[in-house]
Design a protein around this nucleic acid. Structure first.
Lengths: 138, 138
DNA sequence: ACAAAGTCTATAAAATTTATAGGGTTTATA
DNA sequence: TATAAACCCTATAAATTTTATAGACTTTGT
């Protein structure tokens, strides 16, 4: 399951995607719309901005706005950013690799081999679904 | 990512799958082989037995053994048993459904719709990989 | 000048996962 | 039939991660 952080990030991105004609959107507006804590959401939007998905404007009249095309924001990226690995095991993660202590020899481990296959197939799914797909459904 | 519980369950199932000629296998043997805490593994094997994957024999000379064919133990089942939902959001889970508080109307939520698609495609992968596939790789 | 709004870091609270503890029950066998 | 081996079961503790909050700081429009 996704963490609330990632789930909220998706709601925020969706909200921003639906309000692209506005110059900026307030954190508060997104928070109220979904009943999310303002402060919690603040941290999430900050991460999305640092990762290059959002722009922001400080001061009165400021707020956030999308700076990438929705089609260029795949689920895989959002999940990796906020939740970490997509792989089911550390030993098969492309971006967050760590060896598994209980596995003496990774190259001879059937679990490892199968999980690499699962990772690759899962990745296909999550790389092919983007914010645009979400927006298309609303 | 899978919890250690699920990861250890997969190692235990693999071990048992590789020792089907033995009448029984000791918890201790599996624990030692993978450097897992005996007591932690005990609870996991208990769950696998209650779920119908393993049989056990008490008392001296006892232990665990597989009672299902490896091909009939899909990853999806093991994950659901020990980790819970495969779906990325509670609102799209088939087995552990719960509404998402921040979503006013599920039927109009694009995130919900897309996540249903992701769930169905992910499920295909995990239902088609079984313990047999792991054993085939060792 | 003032108020609105994002920035940033630290910390607290809550929840979940991981691990341990210990007595109970069953069974083979000497 | 006593004993030791091995699984059964529930409770609790420890560790980790997630979720939430706090508060001081900076920027900007009016």
């Amino acid at each position: 399951m996704l963490s609330k952080k990632t789930k909220y990030a998706l709601h925020a991105l969706t909200y921003l995607g639906k309000h692209r004609e506005n110059k900026t959107v307030l954190i508060q507006d997104i928070a109220e719309e979904h009943g999310i804590s303002h402060k919690f959401l603040e941290n999430i939007l900050l991460e999305l901005r640092k990762a290059g998905y959002l722009g922001s404007k400080k001061g009165k009249g400021g707020g956030y706005y999308l700076i990438k095309e929705p089609k260029d924001i795949p689920l895989s990226r959002v999940i990796r950013l906020l939740d970490g690995p997509i792989a089911l095991l550390p030993c098969v993660s492309l971006n967050y690799y760590e060896p598994c202590a209980e596995c003496k020899n990774e190259t001879q481990c059937g679990i490892n081999k199968v999980m690499i296959q699962v990772r690759d197939e899962t990745l296909k799914i999550l790389e092919n679904k983007s914010l645009q797909d979400i927006l298309n459904e609303e």
